[in-house]
Simulated scan of single mutants.
Amino acid sequence: MQENIDYYINEEGNFVFTEAYHLKRGYCCENKCRHCPWHYGKDEENNKSEKK
């Protein structure tokens, strides 16, 4: 894994996987990852913001 290609470290010191990493892995883990190329869980989040 390469920093800034497969992951980056956010302000809180957590590793965040990039879309490129997820695509290399080849499947969705269904954990609602921030950069999920399959947009798992994104519909739920969009619906919540529209209701406000």
Rank of each mutant, 00 (worst) to 15 (best):
C29K: 04
N31D: 12
S49G: 02
I9R: 13
C36D: 13
A20V: 06
E44Y: 12
K42W: 07
R34S: 09
T18G: 11
D6S: 08
Y27C: 02
Q2F: 04
N14Y: 14
G26V: 07
R34M: 11
K48D: 15
T18E: 05
W38C: 11
N14I: 04
M1Q: 09
V16K: 01
H39T: 04
K52V: 00
Y27S: 05
K24W: 07
F15E: 15
N10M: 09
E45G: 01
K52Y: 09
N31T: 12
F15A: 14
R25G: 07
E12P: 02
Q2N: 04
Y21L: 13
K51C: 11
K51F: 09
G26P: 09
N4Y: 11
F15Q: 06
S49N: 03
E11H: 11
K48L: 14
R34T: 11
Y27L: 02
C29I: 05
R25C: 06
D43N: 11
N46T: 12
E3C: 00
Y27P: 00
I9A: 11
C36I: 04
D6E: 13
Y8G: 05
N14Q: 06
C33H: 08
D43I: 07
N14V: 03
D43T: 14
N47W: 04
F17A: 09
I5M: 15
I5P: 03
P37V: 01
K48V: 09
K42D: 13
F17P: 01
N4C: 13
K48R: 13
K48S: 13
A20K: 10
H22Y: 08
G26N: 02
E19N: 01
D6V: 01
E3P: 03
C29P: 02
E30R: 13
K51V: 07
Y27K: 00
E12D: 08
A20N: 05
C28Y: 02
R25E: 15
E30D: 09
E44D: 15
I5L: 12
R25I: 10
